[in-house]
Design a protein around this nucleic acid. Sequence first.
DNA 1: GTTGGTGCAAATGATTTGCAAAAGG
DNA 2: CCTTTTGCAAATCATTTGCACCAAC
Lengths: 145, 145
Amino acid sequence: MSCEGEAVAILRQSGHKLTPQRLMVVSALRHAGGHQTAAQILEQVQRVYPYVDVSTVYRTMAVLNELRLVTETDMGGGELAYEWATDEPHHHLICHDCGAVQQVDHAALDHLAETLGDDYGFRADLHHFAIFGTCRACSGQSRTT
Amino acid sequence: MSCEGEAVAILRQSGHKLTPQRLMVVSALRHAGGHQTAAQILEQVQRVYPYVDVSTVYRTMAVLNELRLVTETDMGGGELAYEWATDEPHHHLICHDCGAVQQVDHAALDHLAETLGDDYGFRADLHHFAIFGTCRACSGQSRTT
DNA sequence: GTTGGTGCAAATGATTTGCAAAAGG
DNA sequence: CCTTTTGCAAATCATTTGCACCAAC
């Protein structure tokens, strides 16, 4: 697929080898669209080739993350989520009630970053953020969980 | 210590038992001041009474967290940090360069919460937040404004 | 052929849990 | 007493690593 070409090129340019496993991982992640855990990626890849190991997924994600091809987000639940890197940074609002995930424009956090920089001299590393809370639907209907 | 009285009262009121272990955990956490990992709390407690187990610390923290006496913060490194709950919520700026931790007034995040509520109908659960980045010292005194 | 990549299995490290004994109210 | 809590040990669960083999370049 031509859409993987970019990744392939970067991978080769950086002196990494091009293996079917890596292609499958990249493909799985791109095809999935959203954020995926290592286990989810593994599951996808194993549908095509069952002999792939989790460690390979982790190692591949480490490489891709280093090359800025994917982002690694700590979703708070002990599991890391990986997402294919897009041009513009965005963030996730996760409803801990219904589990819905909403994307947030970076602009919303931009203001925060500015404030932190101004008032605290802190350059916040807000490339990819997960914010927990209650979505509109859930905060509107039930008061008891 | 009289300063533990509040916790003792709440503990008893909520139908929980008052055990020396819990007192020691509370004392350790209050005495420490900042955020502590389970392991750090355990270490403190074991100085007084070595037979306390990690599981007890975790179970105690779960109880205290439920009673809003402590906050549980995901510091991103696979370890949870616990902190004695203060009246006003605050957040942490953690420099991933030098490890310095800076507190941030809740007001800074308040704006973000408002934005998320307004634009996305999302009630962000920003009670206690850890933000990673580079502190002023480590970013080389250079301001980005 | 080198060098890096892979699969496997076993290690790690934080947190959880089952269970019998001990202690709080 | 009766129920909760504890200590211990063993179990999870996500992630990492050592190592012998295999494949890309």
